[in-house]
Amino acid sequence: MSWTDERVETLKKMWAEGQSASQIAKELGGVTRNAVIGKVHRLGLSNRVGGAPDPVKSKADTEPRVEAKPAAAAKPAQPAAKP
């Protein structure tokens, strides 16, 4: 199997549509998922525009950050009273 111009164009189109490497490999035939991933990286296509949705953000990621205030300096302990 060789990467013809037509196969590369198909890969680029499907990748931009958000298809998985496995789906692209099946469509192209004669190529593995890993070969598709390697070609994508060599072509510099790793950043998808319409790819998978963002992972669920944790509560910490969605709440505004509050700057921590430095703790007040500890006051020196008072000496014990003499009897």
Rank of each mutant, 00 (worst) to 15 (best):
S20Y: 00
K13E: 11
V36G: 04
W15V: 01
A74E: 11
L11H: 04
P53Y: 14
V56K: 13
T62D: 09
A77M: 09
K75G: 04
E67S: 15
I37H: 04
Q23N: 04
R7H: 07
A25R: 01
K26D: 12
E27G: 02
K75P: 06
G30D: 07
P64W: 08
L28C: 02
E9Y: 03
V8F: 03
I37C: 12
T32S: 15
V66F: 04
K13D: 11
G30A: 05
V8W: 01
D5M: 09
V56L: 15
E67L: 12
A73P: 03
V66D: 10
H41E: 11
I37Q: 15
V40E: 04
A35I: 01
A71W: 12
A80N: 14
L43R: 14
P79F: 15
L43G: 10
E63C: 04
A21H: 00
K39E: 13
A80Y: 11
V36T: 02
A73M: 08
H41N: 15
R42T: 07
Q23T: 05
S2I: 09
R33A: 15
V49L: 11
A52M: 10
K69T: 05
R33K: 15
P53F: 14
T62P: 03
P55V: 12
P64E: 07
K59P: 05
G18M: 00
N34M: 12
K59H: 06
R42F: 04
R42G: 10
A81M: 07
T32Q: 13
V66T: 07
G18Q: 00
A60S: 07
R48Y: 04
M14F: 02
N34T: 07
A52E: 08
V40P: 02
R65E: 07
L43E: 15
A73T: 08
S20R: 00
A74K: 14
V36R: 01
T32R: 10
N34H: 12
E6T: 13
T4I: 06
K26G: 15
E27K: 09
D61V: 03
K39Q: 15
E6C: 08
P83G: 13
K39A: 06
K26I: 08
A35L: 07
A71F: 10
Q19S: 10
P64N: 11
N34D: 14
M1N: 11
G18N: 04
K39F: 06
W3M: 08
P70W: 13
P55C: 05
W15E: 06
P70K: 14
K75R: 02
E63Y: 01
I24L: 06
S20G: 04
K13Q: 11
A35V: 07
Q78L: 11
P70F: 10
A80V: 15
P55N: 03
Q23I: 00
D61Q: 11
D54F: 12
Q78C: 13
T10Q: 04
P76N: 15
P83S: 13
A71V: 12
M14H: 06
S46T: 08
G38R: 15
